[in-house]
Deep mutational scan, measured.
Amino acid sequence: MEQATVKWFNAEKGFGFIERENGDDVFVHFSAIQGDGFKSLDEGQAVTFDVEEGQRGPQAANVQKA
């Protein structure tokens, strides 16, 4: 698992990007966020996640709020 920071997340559209420590951004979809209830992330929030290869490149999976 990697630890990184949420760059931005649009709760209405259900997706955003996580900024990795190496500077690369990773796409995150609300369905990858672990937990119950409304799944959203806040800008600047610390998260841990795995990286999977998606249809359009790397994307976050198993996202957990740190």
Rank of each mutant, 00 (worst) to 15 (best):
I33C: 07
G16Y: 00
A46K: 13
V26F: 06
V28C: 07
G23D: 08
F38K: 09
D42I: 15
F27H: 00
W8V: 02
V28N: 02
A4I: 00
V47A: 03
F15T: 02
S31N: 07
D36K: 12
V26Y: 04
A60C: 05
S31Q: 06
P58T: 09
R56F: 14
F27V: 01
S31F: 06
G54P: 03
D36A: 11
S31L: 08
N10F: 06
G57N: 03
V47Y: 03
A32Q: 08
G14R: 00
N62H: 09
D36W: 10
F17C: 06
F9A: 04
Q59W: 08
V51P: 04
N22I: 10
D25Q: 13
G35I: 09
F9I: 02
E43P: 15
A66I: 15
A4Y: 05
V63A: 03
H29A: 04
T48M: 11
Q3E: 11
E19Y: 13
K39C: 09
G23Q: 09
L41F: 05
V26G: 03
G57K: 03
G37C: 09
K7M: 03
F30L: 05
G37E: 07
E21I: 11
E53Q: 14
W8M: 01
V6F: 00
T48E: 08
F38S: 06
M1F: 12
G23T: 05
S40E: 07
V6W: 00
A46G: 08
T5H: 13
D25R: 11
F38A: 08
N62D: 04
Q64G: 08
F27Q: 03
T5Y: 14
F49C: 06
V47E: 03
I33G: 00
P58R: 08
Q3R: 14
G44T: 03
G35A: 09
A4K: 00
D25F: 12
A4W: 05
Q64P: 03
N22D: 11
E43W: 13
G54T: 13
N22Q: 10
L41M: 04
D42C: 15
P58I: 09
Q3L: 14
G44E: 03
R56V: 06
F15Q: 02
M1W: 11
R20W: 07
I18S: 01
A4V: 03
F49N: 01
K39H: 07
F17I: 07
V26C: 05
G16T: 01
F27Y: 06
E21G: 10
E21K: 12
D25N: 12
D42W: 15
R20F: 07
A11H: 12
I18Y: 00
V51I: 14
D36R: 09
F17Y: 06
A46Q: 12
E2D: 07
E43R: 15
Q34L: 13
V26D: 01
A4H: 05
A66D: 10
